[in-house]
Design a protein around this nucleic acid. Structure first.
Lengths: 229, 229
DNA sequence: GTTCCCATTTAACCATTTTTAACACACATT
DNA sequence: AATGTGTGTTAAAAATGGTTAAATGGGAAC
């Protein structure tokens, strides 16, 4: 499968060239024209790497990177910029960038840097979520939206499944409300938050089949799945 | 555990500076003076990342990188070079470099690039509070927001739990008001301080179940949990 | 094209946690 | 002792979360 790249670049000329060049080199590229379009595109796609221009209309590259990081702190980000200010570079990495290229840059160098980053992050993807994942008395099949308990076999809905996965991935750690909301609902509005509360209740009922598992409420913060005894 | 860096650099001046700077920033650094020494050092150590100069006596950076890759194709490599030739950069990445910095470069930029790479290749550990934590007649389960006393089992609210944890972490030491406020309430305003006082009262009632434990008020400073007899 | 089904969202109501307010008391300084 | 500031305590107010059921809406089946 071709790696999917999101390119967000307001200069139509550079955007086209990048998109075409990387397309020829075996990537599936999607081009957005400004920060806000880039954010919408990211939410609707499943990208392996993002290339963001820093100075753009509507939403600059730093802000967009922060949004992307809050939804998913894994997808690598490369910044493109005309500035070569040291402080900007450091700020970029602090937000969670993986690389930083100053215009004008060589297409070939960008390509090899993309490959270097993907080499690491796809290796990380090898340690995928275990399927099945066993915990206490439960057997959880993320891929099949299924949860087996000593009493029954539950077919999970999409939202239940994604939420449950986040809890298992963060066992004994707090899952922050806004982080889960951005990952699953792509947006933390009041009503989405209430919707999530409804799903928390559903999941609590499922997990009740194993008395050693409990979802605690961290008031004002989020929730924490803990395993006792 | 500190990440271990191998630095291979023939310029003694730059080598020392790098080693010292990165040492101050929380890394354990080992410095080698040429390619061959670098190779021996790599074989005997267990490094998380290598920083290699390109032009060195005995064995240049490219050759060393190839040796390293043939032993272990996982440890990240960053090249340092005076040249900024496009073809060299591309050759570096082809060998399996993860990043490439042209001299003169900013130490801070190198640092953030190292951190960006390590973020992908290592997992961070979480320092945990003992669970359960036993003191006097009490058994405290931070993870489960629970406190067991000889008389009863108390389910703590989030704020009670965080505050109690701070006291147990600082047994017989003064917990400064503003420190606790910033940790739990993220901000020490007048009203948050009053809110904390309310919680101090609640916790005092819980701890009263063990007469050997008392929270003393250090006027104008904070509070101190002491264990007597 | 219509109907039905079911995942999801919205709404309403209730419970719990946290903050705010008010007043009483303690401590430090003069 | 008088004053100002900090703390103890309680209760009410406000914010947040739990739960249930009805409304919505999109896709499958007819």
């Amino acid at each position: 499968m071709k790696p999917k790249l999101l390119i967000v670049e307001d200069d139509p000329n550079l955007g086209e060239i990048l998109s075409e060049y990387l397309g020829l080199k075996g990537f599936e590229t999607t081009l957005s024209r400004d920060g806000e379009e880039g954010e919408r595109t990211f939410k609707n796609g499943d990208f392996d790497l993002c290339i963001l221009d820093l100075m753009m209309p509507k939403k600059d590259g730093f802000s967009l990177a922060k949004e992307i990081r809050s939804m998913d702190d894994n997808t690598p980000i490369i910044f493109l910029t005309a500035k070569s200010m040291k402080q900007d570079i450091i700020k970029g990495f602090t937000i969670g960038a993986d690389d930083y290229m100053t215009k004008p840059f060589s297409m070939e160098e960008l390509l090899v840097r993309i490959q270097a980053i993907l080499k690491r992050s796809t290796k990380k993807e090898v340690e995928e979520f275990p399927n099945p994942f066993t915990i206490g008395d439960l057997i959880y099949f993320y891929n099949e939206n299924k949860l087996k308990t000593p009493k029954r076999e539950i077919t999970l809905t999409t939202k239940e499944n994604e939420l449950l996965k986040i809890f298992f991935e963060n066992l004994n750690q707090t899952v922050v409300r806004s982080v889960a909301l951005k990952r699953i609902w792509k947006d933390d509005s009041y009503f989405n938050a209430r919707s999530m509360d409804v799903y928390i209740a559903k999941i609590r009922k499922y997990l009740a089949d194993d008395p050693s598992l409990k979802i605690l409420t961290i008031h004002g913060e989020g929730f924490k799945l803990v395993q006792v005894q």
